[in-house]
Computed example of a mutant assay.
Amino acid sequence: MLQRPLTSEYPEYYVPYVILVPEGDLLTILSEDLNNTIVLFKGISDEDGHFRYAPNKWSIKEVLGHMTDTERIMSYRLLRIGRGDQTALAGFNENDYVEGSQINNHSFKDILEDFIATRKATITLIKNMPTEAWGYKGNANNTEVTTRAIGYIIAGHAIHHKKIISKNYLVAKK
C-alpha cells in the first residue's frame, strides 16, 4: 500500500487537497472516487451543465472539464517524475485552460466520458508504477514534488471539486 506523503514532499498550496484523501489504498480510493463521480454527475443535463452558482464562477461543465484537464496534467507529471525524468515541468493557468477548452460547447455526457477515460488511465499508470519510483522527486511549477504526493494530489483535487459541486452548485440549483 502506498504511504501518504509527508508535507515536505509537496508545496503547501496542495495541503487542502492531500488532507481530503481518506486513509486506505490509493488505487481503491481513486476507483471508488470514479464511481462516486459518475453517480454525482450522471443525472446532470446539458442545460443544467451550464449552471453557475454565482457570476464569474465556472459552469458545472467547466468544473468537470477542469477536473479532467488537471488530472491529465498531474498524471503527466507523475509519469515524468516516476520515470526519473529531472526536467523541470511547467505550471499551467487553470482559467486559461477552461477558457481554451470551450467545454460548454460539448455535451455533458461527452465531458463525463472524458473524465472517466482520464481517471482509468490514471489508475493504470499508478497500478504499473514501480515501487521505488514513488519516492522520486522532481520539479513541477518551480516547486519540488514527489511521485507519491502527485498521486494524492490527483485524488484530493477531484474530491475537492466534487464537494464544491455538491455544496454550491447542486444545492443552489434545487
Rank of each mutant, 00 (worst) to 15 (best):
M1H: 12
L2E: 13
L2N: 12
P5Q: 02
L6N: 11
S8D: 05
S8G: 03
P11M: 11
E12M: 08
E12V: 14
E12A: 15
P16Y: 02
Y17I: 08
E23Y: 02
E23P: 03
L26W: 02
L27F: 00
L27A: 03
L27G: 02
T28F: 03
N35V: 09
V39Y: 15
L40D: 05
L40S: 08
K42H: 09
G43K: 11
G43R: 04
S45D: 03
E47Q: 14
E47A: 15
G49N: 00
F51V: 01
A54F: 06
A54G: 05
A54T: 04
K57G: 07
S59F: 01
K61P: 12
K61F: 05
V63I: 10
L64C: 05
L64T: 01
L64W: 00
G65W: 01
H66L: 05
H66Q: 07
M67G: 02
T68Q: 08
T68P: 04
T70H: 00
I73S: 09
M74D: 11
M74H: 11
Y76S: 14
R77T: 11
L79F: 14
R80W: 04
R80K: 15
I81F: 06
Q86N: 10
T87Q: 14
A88D: 12
A88H: 12
L89D: 06
A90C: 12
G91R: 00
G91Q: 00
G91A: 00
F92H: 06
Y97I: 10
V98D: 00
Q102D: 11
I103D: 05
I103H: 02
N104A: 03
N104P: 01
N104F: 01
N105Y: 06
S107K: 09
D110H: 07
I111F: 01
L112G: 01
D114K: 04
F115D: 02
K120H: 13
A121C: 09
T122C: 05
T124P: 00
L125M: 07
L125P: 01
M129Q: 10
P130R: 13
E132N: 14
E132G: 08
W134I: 07
W134F: 15
N139H: 06
N141C: 07
N142H: 10
T143L: 13
E144V: 04
E144W: 03
T146K: 10
R148K: 13
R148Y: 02
R148N: 14
G151K: 02
Y152E: 00
I154Y: 01
A155F: 00
I159R: 00
I159K: 01
I165M: 11
I165A: 04
I165E: 03
S166C: 08
K167N: 14
Y169S: 12
Y169P: 11
V171H: 12
A172N: 14
